[in-house]
Amino acid sequence: MRDRSLAYVLLVPAFLIVLATTLYPLAYSLVTAFREWDLTKQRRPGEFVGVDNFVHAFSEPGFQNSIWITTIFVITSVILTLLIAMSLALLLRREGRLHTFTRIILILPFAMSPALIGVSYRFMFNPEFGVIAKGLGAVFPSLEGVPWLASPDLAMAILVLTDVWHWAPYMTFMCLGGLASVPRETEEAARIDGASSWRVFFGVVLPQMKGVLLVIAVLKTIFALKMFDQVVTLTGGGPGTSTETLAFFIFNVGFKWYDMGYASALAWILTAIMMLISIWYVRMLLSERKMATA
């Protein structure tokens, strides 16, 4: 077989999977987004209602709230993850037994099911018998009996904590990968010239890490926008609606209220946000590669 046709033949199975499991459902939900379809009232899809579902979203407090909650969650978790991952990578790139041990166990949080992470943090922050809640209360008496997950701000903080615990180790590995490509010679040279560690980091290492850090920031933003599991198992969106992210709100609209048209419209708003970010991301990757090969 000629290479030219083989190239396409090899792509066929994977492309069929993507077509059937992603592109077709996407098209289906796009059509649904312009329809009225309340599953509690009608079995078959209802009338086309134009952009009503989208217009409805922007005038609804629940949606506005979820956008706000998602923004807070994404910004805090991305910044914290980046800071921790970068600092840890700087520590871990040296050799040593403790370093190797830490590198190995850092794999565990990423391998743990996010739903389970939510459950175990819920357990540990239970004010009556949670080990973290009790432990903090014993060390700082003023924190005794704080209703961690029943307070809107604290619940949000714990939600961010679980997400950072889950992702920071993974991102540390990515930072380590980036650091490995920074040539040691320039660093050594700067150090010999008498530059302090801080100057070496900000003047030599950080500029060369810019590409990797940008990639991590965008990836983490996308993962944070998608985050769903811990909301269900940790807070259930509460107290009230204080941790109701957009993904969780869509889930509620679709599978508690069974309003398929509206849920599809909301899902497409989320997709649009993520698509914009990912197009920007792939472009950035491609131009980075161009610079690297040039």
Partner: peptide, 9 residues
């Protein structure tokens, strides 16, 4: 990068 919730509906 498509959110899972979009696919599942």
């Amino acid at each position: 990068f498509i959110p899972a919730v979009v696919i599942v509906l």
